[in-house]
């Protein structure tokens, strides 16, 4: 796939989120950990809402979680997703206490339930962009 043919929304990393996107390239799910109070937060942002520190370390998530909710999309709102229909978008409670959202691959729709164990995997979307995906555990 050439860059010109990629017709899905592209992330525009900021100084606050660049390590997250770089981590995905390395197949690591990196989360911000407040250097002031130790709280883990997601999505990446400049400030800890508990202690207002802007210092962070980045910790690698275990990549395991449980389904919190989901939707099965049957309509492509931009053309780039047409070939993937229908696809499952799952919201997942990670073991680290924050949530993530990603496409859940290979799960039978009737098996979907709150609490379904999933693990994080990675998929190269295009040059320079790796996205997280989810797979049902086991």
């Amino acid at each position: 796939m050439t860059n010109d043919s990629y017709d899905k929304p592209m992330p525009e990393p900021t100084p606050d989120s660049a390590p997250y996107w770089a981590g995905l390239q390395q197949h690591k799910l990196l989360l911000q950990k407040c250097a002031g109070c130790g709280r883990i937060r997601h999505y990446p942002r400049p400030m800890c809402d508990a202690c207002y520190s802007t210092d962070v370390t980045w910790v690698e998530a275990a990549g395991r979680g449980k389904v919190h909710s989901w939707t099965i999309t049957h309509h492509a709102f931009v053309p780039g997703f047409r070939d993937e229909l229908p696809y499952v978008l799952a919201t997942v409670d990670l073991e680290e206490g924050v949530r993530m959202n990603a496409q859940l691959r290979g799960a039978d729709p009737v098996s979907l339930r709150i609490g379904l164990p999933v693990r994080v995997d990675y998929e190269r979307a295009r040059e320079g962009l790796t996205l997280p995906i989810l797979r049902a555990e086991g």
Binding site: K8, P9, M10, P11, E12, P13, T14, S17, Y43, H68, S69, W70, T71, T73, H75, F77, V78, F81, E84, Y87, L89, T91, N101, A102, Q103, R113, I114, A125, L129, L131, P132
Partner: peptide, 28 residues
């Protein structure tokens, strides 16, 4: 925020962003 972290994954339109609220309500 969703533009950076969710839309690239395929969660683009309000119907997709809101549907998990409805699904969770149904499950609970």
């Amino acid at each position: 925020v969703v533009g950076e972290f969710e839309m690239p994954l395929g969660a683009i339109a309000p119907a997709q962003l809101y549907a998990p609220m409805a699904r969770r309500h149904m499950e609970l």
